[in-house]
Design a protein around this nucleic acid. Structure first.
Length: 431
RNA sequence: UCCUCGGUAGCUCAACUGGUAGAGCAGCCGGCUGUUAACCGGCGGGUUGUAGGUUCGAGUCCUGCCCGAGGAGCCA
């Protein structure tokens, strides 16, 4: 019985007879010599089939195998400078498990629309594999950071009874005759969980039925949201910078090869160490004005504004104390300037924009109720949320980090759609 | 919802001021013992998104619609 090996650790098997189970990535037919590029999910190795060295039917199998056919190859691992990756397999046996039909995605250029229609196949390309690997590492780092720092994972519901936020559009679904909505955030539920466990986080998909059509928006995306009892805005900002730096450093440490495959210049990432530069909204507005941008105090920043602010710094920047009017109803007002909220956004460098939004939440029941009414929200739906301010309310804060925007930034991608296996975008839900 | 650009072979694209729709890749056939998106020779491949209009003649010009891309607005 020949030992099964994976391409990733093929060097350990030099001189040995091994079996690799995978797919035919590409092939060069040289007549009596076939070069098969075989990928197995861990890497790509060149398998060499010589007509004189194998039975006729094995050579025929190599000749007829098409791109993306599932194949099992056995042979001896040998080092060879001419082989991509430095090692190749001298094939003695080859089985075509399924002969693939002509594969739509050739090793040539393709347009975005075509690739998106074939996303289920596009995922197999080396570039997409690298992004998926980095995404998985980002998620692992998120969990690892919170699990190691006293946070408990507390899942929040995806089906929710009412709008958490008035201005956002929710996906509505039928709940046995009642209306239910897909969650836009787990935060409100996490505010309940902190009274049980102190520091919690939730991690799941969120849904926003906004007709946004930009490179930074998805209708379904993943968000990780920590929430802490007895924590103020400064605690929140401190957590944010430690957390973001941990994610970036984890990817740099564990996914070097994938970053290189993507052609990512890692020097800007290597600078992502705490503390991050901080500025108030007021200071940010001054910077925008000094750069000649037409910006009105009291508005929220648009994408060009975020880019202009972020390019002032080499590290992510924490912009805090936004006007109450541009932030959510539950933001704690600044005691020194009640027109401002104790809120913070983290803007990623290199034009990637907001990756974190959060801040300190209102602790006082009466003020919270007043804000709910000011925002024309149904107070009845928020009774449980108001209860949290009746039974042991504390100053508390937290934030949400968008996984896809973070992955896009770390990978240096043009568009967020490549950061999630099956992106849900405006007018695109297939495949 | 708005603005801009686009839709021609399976894919990526070309086709001058309107005049016989073409190339590379992929596919198929043949050749090649070191290829790296291999190369060489051959073959097949089209309702030019759609409906109408102008014209002797429309891929090309005009109008509506559909679809896509980029951006804006929107966006705990």
């Amino acid at each position: 019985m020949v030992e099964r090996a994976c391409v990733e650790s093929i060097a350990q098997h030099e001189g040995q007879q091994v079996t690799i189970k995978g797919w035919l990535y590409n092939k060069t037919d040289k007549g009596k010599l076939q070069f098969l590029l075989v990928r197995d999910g861990t890497g790509i190795i060149q398998a060499v089939v010589l007509e004189d060295d194998v039975p006729a039917q094995t050579f025929e199998a190599a000749q007829m195998a098409t791109q993306e056919s599932s194949i099992i190859v056995s042979g001896t691992v040998r080092a060879d400078e001419r082989a991509p990756g430095g090692y190749e397999l001298a094939v003695t046996e080859l089985e075509v498990v399924q002969l693939a039909e002509p594969y739509p995605i050739t090793p040539k250029e393709h347009g975005v629309s075509f690739l998106m229609d074939h996303r289920h196949l596009w995922l197999r390309s080396p570039r997409q594999q690298a992004i998926l690997k980095i995404r998985a590492e980002v998620i692992r780092a998120c969990r690892d950071y919170f699990d190691s720092n006293g946070f408990t994972l507390v899942d929040t519901p995806i089906l929710t009874p009412a709008a958490c936020e008035g201005t956002s559009t929710l996906f509505e679904t039928d709940y046995f005759g009642e209306s239910a909505y897909l969650a836009q955030s787990g935060q409100l539920y996490s505010e309940a969980s902190i009274a049980a466990l102190g520091k919690v986080y939730c991690f799941g998909p969120t849904f926003r039925a906004e007709k946004s059509k930009t490179r930074r928006h998805l209708l379904e995306f993943w968000m990780v949201e920590p929430e802490m009892a007895y924590a103020d805005l400064d605690d929140c900002m401190h957590l944010a910078e430690e957390f973001v730096a941990y994610i970036v450093q984890s990817v740099l440490k564990n996914r070097k090869a994938q970053l290189e495959l993507l052609g990512r210049d890692t020097t800007p990432l290597e600078r992502v160490e705490p503390p991050f530069p901080r500025m108030t909204y007021d200071e940010a507005v001054e910077i925008l004005h000094s750069k000649g941008l037409d910006f009105q105090w009291g508005d929220d920043f648009g994408a060009p504004d975020e880019t202009a602010l972020a390019e002032e710094f080499e590290r992510p920047v924490l912009v805090n104390r936004y006007p109450t009017q541009v932030k959510a109803f539950y933001m704690e007002p600044d005691p020194e300037r009640p027109e401002l909220s104790l809120s913070v956004d983290c803007l990623a460098p290199e034009g990637y924009g907001e990756i974190i939004g959060g801040g300190q939440r209102i602790a006082d029941r009466d003020l919270l109720l007043q804000r709910i009414e000011e925002h024309d929200l149904p107070a009845q739906a928020f009774q449980w949320y108001l209860d949290l301010r009746r039974y042991g309310s504390t100053p508390h804060s937290g934030f949400g980090l968008g996984i896809e925007r973070t992955v896009a930034w770390i990978c240096g991608l043009e568009h967020i759609r490549e950061t999630i296996p099956f992106p849900r975008m405006l007018y695109r839900i297939y495949p």
